[in-house]
Computed example of a mutant assay.
Amino acid sequence: MDSHATPRSRSTGMTTDRRHATVTTDLGDLLAVAEGDALAGLYFPRHWHPPKVEDIGAEVPSAGDPVFEATRRELGEYVRRERTTFTVPTVTHGDAFSERVWDLLVTIPYGETTTYGAIARELGNVGLAQRVGQAVGRNPVSVLIPCHRVVGADGSLTGYAGGLDRKARLLEIEEPPEVAESRLF
């Protein structure tokens, strides 16, 4: 794993110390789920694969919660282009294949993209591209585990559980200044 990537851990089962809050960011209001001292979920409104109500724990205020405050702060710095990596620890509970895919997502450098096929090749079988796409789409921690950096084989923006407009915005945030300045619109 990239040493600059979000610190990640896995767990075989969800714990009872889960809690959730709405975190207001420059990207909009996000549903954040924490487990202990780690972020376990970050979801945009109308997310394709929202968590089950029974899996998000009690609602708590985001203010005063160290995980939610750090998430809000780091996302703000990211949107202002002051941060290229995240330090908020994350925890996920996927199957072995999904965990392997999510581990690869955190190694995609800021400002770069890869394809579903390239990830499948890295996993040893280009025929797994569709399955990679499914795992990418079910990434529980949007932005911090950067699934927005995965594009179609032709470079097109393809499915994003938070919406293609948000994917485009996240990629725009990561554009080098000279690329952003060269765009007319």
Rank of each mutant, 00 (worst) to 15 (best):
D2K: 12
H4Y: 10
A5D: 07
T6E: 00
P7Q: 03
G13E: 15
T15G: 10
R18S: 07
R18K: 07
R18F: 03
R19T: 00
A21C: 00
T22F: 11
T25P: 01
G28W: 06
L31Q: 04
A32W: 06
E35H: 06
D37I: 10
G41V: 08
L42W: 00
H47E: 11
H49D: 13
K52T: 14
V53H: 13
V53P: 11
V53S: 15
E54M: 13
D55A: 13
D55R: 09
E59R: 10
G64R: 01
G64L: 02
A70H: 11
T71K: 06
R72M: 08
R72T: 05
R73Y: 12
L75H: 07
L75D: 04
V79G: 01
T92Q: 00
D95P: 10
E99P: 09
E99T: 15
V101W: 07
D103M: 11
L105Q: 07
V106Q: 05
P109S: 00
Y110E: 04
Y110N: 03
T113F: 07
T115V: 07
T115K: 04
T115W: 05
T115C: 03
Y116A: 14
G117L: 15
G117P: 08
A118Q: 14
I119V: 13
R121N: 09
E122M: 12
N125C: 04
V132C: 01
Q134A: 14
G137W: 01
G137Y: 03
N139S: 05
P140A: 06
V141C: 00
I145E: 08
R149Q: 01
V151R: 09
G152I: 11
D154P: 09
D154N: 15
G155P: 04
L157F: 09
T158M: 13
A161Q: 04
R166S: 06
R166A: 01
A168C: 08
E172R: 15
E175D: 14
P176R: 15
P176S: 15
E178R: 14
E178K: 12
V179F: 08
R183L: 11
L184I: 12
